[in-house]
Design a protein around this nucleic acid. Structure first.
Length: 487
RNA sequence: GGCCCCUUGGUCAAGCGGUCAAGACACCGCCCUUUCAAGGCGGUAACGCGGGUUCGAUUCCCGCAGGGGUCACCA
């Protein structure tokens, strides 16, 4: 394939959304697969809603996901600037050109007039659209309107009777009739171009070869094609990716839960997991494996395996995916990941000592294979903390175990042996357990389960030996004593 | 409502005229087990409907239905 150049062009009106992240990912995978160029540009023509904070947040999320870019915001390049609001001078001559050739014209209609027109059309059962009232205004009319203080917008004159064809790389040929499209605005009354115009200008001027974006843009494409033609720009390839849906099958939005990348980051998901998961939403690799490191995704990615049908975002599968990556990660990394959650839960001080950090790493190492995401850490880890533990009243297995005839003796014996031992490691714990079993003639569940429940208050939890080892003899003894008194 | 897109188990999905219709998540059993999990084995569960085309349709065509998107001085 000839040189490939793609772009991700978010609008900084909110954090990076899951859908946006998936678009960015597909563009990135496509670019990397073909050794092409990835550009990131900011579409900030919506002055009221765009902020620099969101821009930073989005860029940050992109970097966190491991999606880098070769040209654009932050890295520069030959086609800058890369914020649309800084490109107004670049757009201007092209607007003039369209105006001069009559392919665009000034429109002075007010909001109210347009609204009235819409209502009128709708009440007659016709489609609401702009009918071209200002198409043929005379110079005098214009001067009058200007004098009256009206600020015009620039509209694109949509030709009649044309069939606009989008050759879409994932959908095939899609046709639209130009008659269904009213003359649309390309420059707002404040002089700032609209999305449909600016996006074409930028894509053309930046030499974008492939436009991969969400399906919500498909019906905008015929308008954009018109502009490409009017300005004699060469047409890029289009590929519209199906939408990501919420559980109720409507376009994923805030009410569906966590929808922004930062939220997943905060919950303690790993970027590789999110990337892997997202890659499988609307694309499928050949073969049966599903877990791929990112460079393997790059190697395998291809547009012709991109699905046409929308996909429901499946939280369970994401969790499963993340669990896979967590259990394969180093305890150091996962400890780091859990830190903020443990601090917030009050299990750890803001500035933990080196000792408690190294202890914590061992704790994390014993439970990390159970974690689906780091925010679960406090729950899973809390049994390692505290001098006393109450038996979970919901846990009938636990109560039954403590009610065993042999249990008090087992607990007492363990407590004594724990206090006698100076050295304390997993070997010690093992031998103590063995001794008790021998001395009291108790084995299996009656032995191990009893100790577990007495020391943790629950009939399930981390590996018993590791639990006892890490909690330490003094605390174990205190917990056992407490249990003895309260059982 | 007009236009456009989509339709295989609960979800993600393979399939690209002939398959007992893959696989994954979730769910349910059993095994293993010093708990839970993991792991192993097994199970429940799908081609929206109606017409064509064809020796043969999940696959191709046409309707219908359902879902979604879009019709802004938002992107």
């Amino acid at each position: 394939m000839a040189q490939v150049k793609v772009r991700f062009a978010p609008s900084p009106t909110g954090p990076l959304h899951i859908g946006g992240a998936r678009s960015a990912l597909f563009n990135w995978l496509f670019a990397r697969h073909h050794n092409g160029t990835m550009v990131v540009r900011i579409e900030d023509t919506d002055i009221d809603r765009s902020t620099r904070e969101y821009e930073d947040l989005i860029l940050d999320s992109l970097r966190w996901l491991g999606l880098d870019w070769d040209e654009g915001i932050g890295v520069g390049g030959p086609n800058g600037p890369y914020r649309q609001r800084e490109r107004l001078d670049i757009y201007h001559p092209y607007v003039e050109k369209l105006l001069a050739s009559g392919q665009a014209y000034h429109c002075y209609c007010s909001e109210d007039e347009l609204e009235a027109e819409r209502q009128e059309l709708m009440s007659r059962g016709e489609l609401p659209r702009y009918l071209g009232k200002c198409r043929e205004l005379s110079i005098r009319d214009k001067e009058e309107k200007c004098a009256a203080g009206r600020k015009p917008v620039v509209r694109f004159r949509v030709p009649e009777g044309r069939t606009l064809t989008v050759e879409d790389l994932v959908r095939g040929r899609v046709e639209f009739e130009s008659d269904g499209i009213g003359d649309f605005i390309i420059v707002k009354s404040d002089g700032i171009p609209t999305y449909n115009f600016a996006v074409v200008m930028d894509d053309a001027l930046m030499g974008i070869t492939h436009i991969l974006r969400g399906e919500e843009h498909l019906s905008n494409t015929p308008r954009q094609i018109l502009i490409y033609e009017a300005l004699n720009f060469s047409m890029p390839h289009f590929a519209h990716i199906s939408l990501i849906l919420g559980e109720d099958r409507s376009k994923m939005s805030k009410r569906h839960g966590a929808t922004s990348v930062v939220q997943y980051r905060e919950q303690g998901y790993l970027p590789e997991a999110l990337v892997n998961f997202l890659s499988l939403l609307g694309w499928s690799p050949e073969g049966e494996e599903e877990i791929f490191p990112i460079d393997e995704l790059v190697r395998r990615f291809s547009l012709d395996r991109v699905s046409k049908s929308p996909a429901v975002f499946n939280f369970d599968k994401l969790k499963w995916m993340n669990w896979n990556y967590i259990k394969e990660s180093s305890p150091d990394r996962i400890t780091e990941l859990c830190l903020p959650h443990l601090k917030r839960a009050g299990l750890l001080s803001e500035t933990p000592s080196a000792d408690s950090m190294s202890w914590l790493k061992q704790v994390v190492a014993t439970v990390q294979e159970k974690l689906e995401y780091a925010a679960q850490a406090p729950d899973v880890i809390s049994v390692f903390f505290g001098d006393t533990v109450d038996v979970d009243s919901e846990d009938t297995d636990a109560r039954q175990v403590l009610a065993l005839e042999t249990s008090p003796a087992v607990i007492r014996a363990f407590r004594e042996k724990a206090l006698e031992h100076k050295a304390w490691d997993s070997e010690t714990v093992r031998s103590i357990l063995k001794e008790i079993g021998k001395e009291l003639g108790v084995k299996g569940k009656a032995l191990f389960m009893t100790v577990r429940v007495a020391v943790s208050g629950q009939s399930h939890g981390p590996d018993l030996n590791a639990l006892l080892t890490l909690v330490g003899p003094e605390t174990v003894a205190r917990r056992l004593e407490y249990t003895l008194k309260h059982m």
